[in-house]
Design a protein around this nucleic acid. Sequence first.
DNA 1: TCTGGGGTCCTAGGACCC
DNA 2: TCTGGGGTCCTAGGACCC
Length: 431
Amino acid sequence: MPVFALVDCNNFYASCEKLFDPKLKGTPVVVLSNNDGCVVARSAEVKALGIPMGVPWFQIREQARRHGIVAFSSNYALYADMSNRVVEVLSGFTSNIEVYSIDESFLEVSGFSNWPGGLAGYGEEIRQRIADWLGLAVCVGIAPTKTLAKLANHCAKKGLAATAGVCDFTTMAPEMLTCLLGRIEVGEVWGVGRKISARLDAMGIKTVRELRDMNAETIRASFSVVLERTVRELRGVSCLALEELVPDRQQIMSSRSFGTLVYDLADLEEAVASYIAKGAVKLRTQDSLAGAVQVYIRTNIFKPEVPQYQRGVTVPLPEASADTRVLTAWALKVLRRIYRPGFGYHKAGVMLLNLVPRTSRQFALFDAQGSAMDGRSERLMGVLDSINGRYGRGVLRLAAEGVDRSWQMRRGNLSPGYTTTWAGLPRVRAN
DNA sequence: TCTGGGGTCCTAGGACCC
DNA sequence: TCTGGGGTCCTAGGACCC
């Protein structure tokens, strides 16, 4: 029987920002989405103020000023680096890890029940070590299924039936657990989102306990096999395994809202070329080729009073490729086809689709001279990636990506790259 | 003035096959 | 008078996650 521990960082992005600036201790901190659009992370102080997740920043700016909230633009380089450090510390506990998201990992811990203090003691040690070594707070939920481990983590975070950030369902008396699940809203369950919550609510199912006790076949008939699996997991039947190997992406998306409205085709071309370049790096990192490219552009959907236009078109490539030049040429061809002058564009994006492993490439029938045959493309892209890997992303790039890039997103309150750039290293002064 | 980005999985329905 | 049964593949749309 497996036992899962879910380790989840508290207020992760906000905690990363606070970590390197001691002055922020006790200060309410939010982190904003790209373009400084929405609130995507809140420190404990901000949550206490009742500011909801996902709210547009401009709507609460005045309120934030009154409460002295400090806002940061997203610094993904910092968060990704701290995330890697957390995973490294966790790797010291067990090698059976699934890195589920930037701030969460599942661990398979059935072998550690003899640990001093049991699995809860094990969880406590994880918490302590991450706090000591990285200065970050995490909560640990332990249970026989992943879905229950998520809920246990929720209890640990909310202080429900848990001591100091660890909650272990495996040692809890069944009546206790039932009682606890009866106090948690069904929408907290992993896999139950807004829509399903509303439908369950209409059926009179409001708590986790009520969902757990539903007939699984009924749930399957009225919802789907996915929710049926959730019900079984809530009963302690493990249906979801630890996924230690990260499968290759099936599609790669790259898109951004612009810092200001974009009217010119030339600017859109630069943006699309940049997004392709970014996606192509990911593509080559997983050693895949794209068999199709999609490009889309759209005006600002939040401004229905201005003329609206949006269009996206997918082209299959004659031969799958991971060459930035090839992908860019196709993407620009699509863009020129869908572009309509006179609109203020708010966002553009590209998708790399029909991905296949490079080793199972299908050559084009009528293109014996093609880039695939000579290996020069792969060598060039290899050099491109290694130079950018060493000197920074975008140091070497196609001219199509532009120089001025007036369309780039806003990042007005970006913190330094504390752990990722030399100039950003924190300084410690001894008095 | 101002509203993120990047993914996965499942299902239903249509086209097509023998 | 009367028109089957069983299957695959693809796509679009909808749900979910962080």
